[in-house]
Amino acid sequence: MSQPTTRDRDTSSADGLPIAYVPDRPRMRETPEQLRARIPGWGADLDPADRPSHPKLQYSPDSTGAHWRFPERQAGAEGRERSIEHAFVTPVFGTAQPLHGVSGMIRRLAYRRYSEARFGHWLLLIFGDRVDAWGSHLRSFATLHPDNPITQTGIRSELSASGTMRRGRSDRRHHLLDPVIVAGPWVIAAGGLVLGVRRFRRRAAG
């Protein structure tokens, strides 16, 4: 494993100056023949004009499989949230997890009040996500399937089938910190809320 992973550096100009400081063309380290011999398919898409995504816009409405000018409208669009940058609810839309409860009110406000260009739109949606998550956790405890942090985080997979620790983690430098970072803002927010309510009460009382 100690073999060098990159070839030795070399300067490509004749007088040893790094190429960026002189007008020379960089030399290819390997000829096309060498590359073709070493790498399966080298140069198969060499011509930039003959690549699938060139040019970016390719007008070809008859080749997409669509047999309509505008799709038939899916039923149930009334009242569905939409970006106010859209002219209407799109003819086809997702119906998974319709808005509900408090998180639904927050999300509806985000859609109705702000365009995608506004920070408030996204902040409200993120806030709605947190309310949705906490509401669902709490509600789950009143069901036959309460949330279970052990199974749901997949933490069991830290142990392999044979009971030994799985090897290798990418996040080793911050994985111990992660729970603190994830939980921290909640603790701080809760603390802030308590202080705020107290101050408000005191002011209201005094």
Partner: peptide
């Protein structure tokens, strides 16, 4: 543009 009511981007 016809499939995502929630965002145009």
């Amino acid at each position: 543009h016809n499939v995502n009511a929630n965002a145009t981007a």
